[in-house]
Nucleic acid binder design. Structure first.
Length: 417
RNA sequence: CGGGGUAUAGUGUAACGGCAGCACGAGUCGUUUGGGACGACUUAAUCUCGGUUCGAAUCCGAGUACCCCGACCA
């Protein structure tokens, strides 16, 4: 991608009226654009990051048997009345009216549309288990939006729903899903600061597991067990003075943001929709369900909260919009030609590269913007480096740059990927 | 929804009740090119409605929007 053609604009000025770092940086660096409170566009750069996050999630869901599908956002009122959530979620549900005053819901989650589909597919124990998932927009009229893309009224979420013949099968799969979640956060570059956290199950069950990323802007307080590394949410800490996993008692208190949550739904939704199956013994039994969510935009914001410095964002390689930020300095033809060649060569080797091909920009401007954008590798090519047939490679977030022979550039970048 | 704050060019900020200015950005031309260049010219703003006043960006009232704190959530 040529930077001169990229649909974005950065600014040196701090975004007015923003408190959180991710909000400020993502706006300033041209990743997102706010349309109103809690509603954002993902500009090309931001969309690239979002798609990278999505790809990691999709891959891991498919690895545990997930089948991706797409569900409607526009729901009829009746299915929400059936589960009681037309009233229960009244505060956050967007209810809209169509022709002839017919009422609809902009879906805030998708059990209500998933279960009716399952009812047409699942009849026998032979039809179970199933693990459909989807990645799409959901709407919640949050009473208060917060911190840029960390809490919004419209957000992209992955939800996987699992259907089981009995509790043992649900319990087993729940652990499989939890492992997949740990893998997702690890692959997204935040595994070391994201903790599986025992939390309240809300209206679904006694307990659920949250995945909490430690950052100062976090809204939740979690207690991390120093012995085994799992955590407990403050909301249920009083009930669990010792670690429920290893019985250890020493905790470290941290602020964290919830980037994922998994629930055992049990029969919460199969009962109202009368979703049942015929078991081996010939009797009808209710299907047991689990649900497993991750907010993609929130994860993106949380990553920025956890990974930045005073100059800008520092993307983990797996989610970065580009692997390499190529910068040429100086106006001489030879430098630009060499940069052009390197750009082509990187592309031919399937290394995602953003080339700052702009003229009339000083080194300072290019470097400053590069730091703000946060692409993992910065490659500088200039008269100075070309004097030794080299380029300069610097990792974002590290102080030192190194000179690498031009012909070894690709190899060098590869090694670090 | 309760509480607090803010509202001026694209962005960030000034202006005692008396000529709306500065910086960045953007545009044209020229000169520049290793950490946020230089010169010349240009572009563009007082949230809305009402009130007070000779006169309102400024004071008052209402509305709206945004940010922050609380309850809730991915």
């Amino acid at each position: 991608m040529l930077q001169s053609k990229l649909f974005y604009k950065t600014t040196k000025n701090k975004t007015a009226g923003t408190e959180s770092v991710s909000h400020d940086l993502l706006v300033r660096a041209g990743y997102v654009d706010q349309l109103m409170a809690g509603v954002y566009s993902f500009l090309p750069l931001g969309f690239m990051v979002l798609k990278n996050i999505e790809a990691i999630i999709r891959k891991n869901m498919e690895e545990i048997g997930g089948q991706e599908m797409l569900m409607p956002v526009l729901h009829p009122k009746e299915i929400w009345q059936k589960t009681g959530r037309w009233d229960a979620l009244n505060d956050i549900l967007f209810k809209i009216k169509g022709n002839a005053d017919k009422e609809y819901v902009l879906a805030s989650t998708h059990e209500e549309s998933m279960v009716p589909s399952a009812k047409k597919i699942i009849f026998s124990y032979r039809d179970l288990p199933f693990y459909p998932f989807h990645i799409q927009l959901k709407f919640r009229d949050e009473l208060r939006v917060k911190s840029g893309i960390l809490r919004t009224k419209e957000f992209i979420m992955k939800d996987l729903y699992s259907f089981h013949v009995n509790q043992a099968d649900l319990d087993k799969y729940y652990e499989v899903a939890a492992k997949a979640y740990e893998k997702i956060f690890k692959e997204a570059g935040v595994g070391k600061i994201t903790y599986r956290t025992l939390a309240s199950g809300g209206s679904f069950s006694k307990y659920s597991d949250e995945f909490q990323m430690v950052t100062d802007i976090g809204e939740d307080l979690i207690y991390i067990c120093k012995k085994c590394g799992i955590a407990i949410n403050k909301e249920i800490k009083a009930e669990n003075p010792v670690c429920p996993k290893c019985q250890g008692g020493e905790f470290e208190e941290k602020k964290a943001v919830e980037v994922g949550n998994i629930f055992k739904l049990g029969t919460k939704f199969s009962t109202p929709f009368d979703l049942k199956f015929t078991d081996k013994d010939g009797h009808d039994k209710p299907v047991l369900m689990g649900c497993y969510g991750i907010g993609l935009g929130r994860l993106m914001g949380a990553i920025v909260e956890a990974s930045h410095d005073d100059k800008g964002i520092i993307w983990p390689a797996a989610v970065a919009p580009f692997a390499v930020h190529l910068i040429h300095l100086g106006a001489d033809k030879k430098t630009k030609t060499s940069a052009q060649k390197l750009y082509k060569s990187l592309q031919e080797n399937n290394i995602k590269v953003l080339w700052d091909d702009r003229e009339n920009k000083t080194a300072g401007e290019k470097f400053g913007e590069s730091d703000l954008l946060g692409i993992p590798y910065r490659i500088v090519i200039s008269e100075r480096t070309l004097a030794t047939n080299s380029v300069e490679i610097k990792e974002r977030g590290k102080e030192k740059a190194k000179l690498v022979k031009l012909k070894d550039t690709i190899k060098n970048v590869r090694q670090h990927q």
